[in-house]
Design a protein around this nucleic acid. Structure first.
Lengths: 335, 335
DNA sequence: GTGAAAGCGCTAACAG
DNA sequence: CTGTTAGCGCTTTCAC
């Protein structure tokens, strides 16, 4: 591969002149500019980004860490982020924390080792050690989905409390009184917010919630299936279920089907997040959807803002809660 | 960040000794080893991978390029590849060609610029220029899904001809004679193979295929929808459809539904590839599924084989066609 | 306007 | 067994 030396030799100038011409042509005479340009063209010179990174401490790479890359959300976000990155000549390193904070931190180290110029993270940890680690990262950081208290980083997510509240309200309006909630993992910000949204709305409506009616899953289909099975075969089965997320809802749907029940005739179901291929799944689910596309746009624009800015002029951490949209399907009916 | 200098100073040895100790401890005295180890621990030294890359010309990064990262297949493959990579201390750069060969080559340049140690590629180009470019890459390369004739790279894919043949056979056995095929983009290896599988099987069964019964889509749902609409509203509509891939099938299903038809009562449908959440979609589709998981395993193990080997001892390009499995659902019935 | 020289952090001959 | 030295390819003062 041709180096800046080769260009310099061919153009009959020093390498520092070539380097200068490359980043501030105005400070080099027109003649020299042309000779250099020609030499570059002739030998097909491309600057070695590794050498630049070694010098500057910043690579043209950004890192993105998700809990699970098979979640359909992920693909959509990655797609938009990757496009935004490529426009700015950056590549994207993708990694999966598997929801494990230790793993997450280990990956972050690797990423910082590669001198990434910025990070997008769906954080899954908490506690002082975790926070301290993130605070020391010293790279532009945008967090997604889960809000971490006390972290000086940008955050983009949606109003999870509202999402639950809308759906709960919707089911109550149909006349349901025994509504169950299959929550996400306790301790996760989104899961806690969604649960609060459910409980608050039930309380406001003057409806009590049995302990047995709130169970904790892990945002995965299999667990959703198991928990739904238990709920639906219990003596006092609910007439409606609020599933904490899309994949959980699919598990629930499967359980309903396997039990020979019908939705919405025997049981109403709503969930937060869109479901892949939701238009084809019968019945169409009533859900509170967040705009992945908006999340990805905001995240990448904020990230590149910070990457372009010097640390000095960097704005304080920003936060944005997007409003979920209620999409009414055919998965709810009177009890 | 601590450098090897700091370690050397603290341990009271030269930096070359530290470097040596780091990669071949046996050539350093036990005492020195310990002093160095201690120093490393004390200041939390981690070698700067960028400097190593500059020296060696190889980074601990691998690149993977897909046509479209929102395809559910992609997430599963990425997941396995990323795990295999992380075990070997490699990170994964992910990029999307959007099925555009030019874009694909541009991304490859970037990736090679980053001195990736290996590449996994779903190739979408053809022609001499394209081939030459790939041949000059000079990095371990594993191609997936689409086989490119004349490319000296490993290839893992499935037997697309067989997949189509099995499904076509299946529909013929139900008594269908007017079967339509919504193919993928003409010129793509998988699409051509699938079409051949369909046509060959029809021919063998002595069934003619109207030109109108073979239409070309783009492997995307929307196009599948449009083409299915056209087929299903034509005067001589088919009694069964073979969709070239999963997302196309979902588009077809949607079209069937929107027309007020029922599958399989009015129209039978089969497709190649698994469908996300296929268990929940009604009717369960009859499909020929390929094991993404096997593909990913083979691809990553082959890739890391080559990465670990010197170029000299590298084996010639390997090829592997996995056998698709017929999964019978409820989407077929007699015409 | 252009060039010489130092240095980013590491590796690998080559001496000793 | 350990240290000296010369780069990998680029950027960036600082002179001229």
């Amino acid at each position: 591969m041709a180096t800046i030396r080769d260009v310099a030799r061919l153009a009959g100038v020093s390498i520092s002149t070539v380097s200068l011409a490359l980043r501030d042509a105005s400070r080099v005479s027109l003649q020299t500019q042309e000779r250099i340009a020609e030499a570059i063209r002739d030998i097909g010179y491309v600057a070695n980004p590794i050498a630049q990174t070694l010098k500057s401490g910043r690579s043209r790479l950004i890192g993105i860490i998700f809990g699970n890359v098979t979640n359909p959300f992920f693909g959509e976000i990655l797609q938009k982020v990757e496009r935004a990155a490529l426009e700015r000549d950056h590549l994207v390193i993708v990694s999966e924390s598997r929801f494990d904070p230790e793993r997450e931190l280990a990956i972050l180290s690797h990423l910082v080792g590669q001198r990434v110029s910025g990070l997008i993270l769906v954080p899954h940890g908490r506690g002082e050690r975790y926070l301290n680690y993130l605070r020391r990262l010293d790279r532009p950081l945008v967090t997604l989905d889960h809000r971490v208290e006390g972290l000086p980083a940008d955050f983009v997510g949606s109003d999870n409390h509202l999402a639950s509240a809308m759906l709960t309200e919707h089911m109550i309006r149909y006349g349901h009184r025994r509504i169950a909630h299959i929550a996400g993992p306790s301790g996760l910000w989104t899961a806690d917010e969604r649960k609060r949204g459910f409980l608050d709305t039930m309380a406001t409506a003057g409806l009590g919630v049995d302990d047995a009616m709130v169970v904790h899953g892990d945002y995965e289909a299999e667990m959703g299936y198991g928990l739904a099975m238990r709920l639906l075969t219990s003596a006092s089965r609910p007439t409606a279920i609020l599933a904490a997320n899309n994949t959980t809802a699919l598990g629930v749907l499967q359980a309903i089907d396997d039990l020979g029940l019908r939705c919405p005739q025997h049981i109403s179901l709503t969930c937060i997040d869109d479901v892949p291929w939701s238009k084809i799944i019968k019945p169409r689910l009533t859900m509170a959807v967040q705009s992945t596309s908006d999340i990805a746009d905001i995240a990448s624009s904020w990230l590149f803002d910070r990457i372009d800015q010097s640390v000095a002029t960097a704005p304080p951490p920003r936060e944005r809660l997007l409003m979920p949209k209620l999409v009414v399907g055919q998965s709810c009916a009177p009890p």
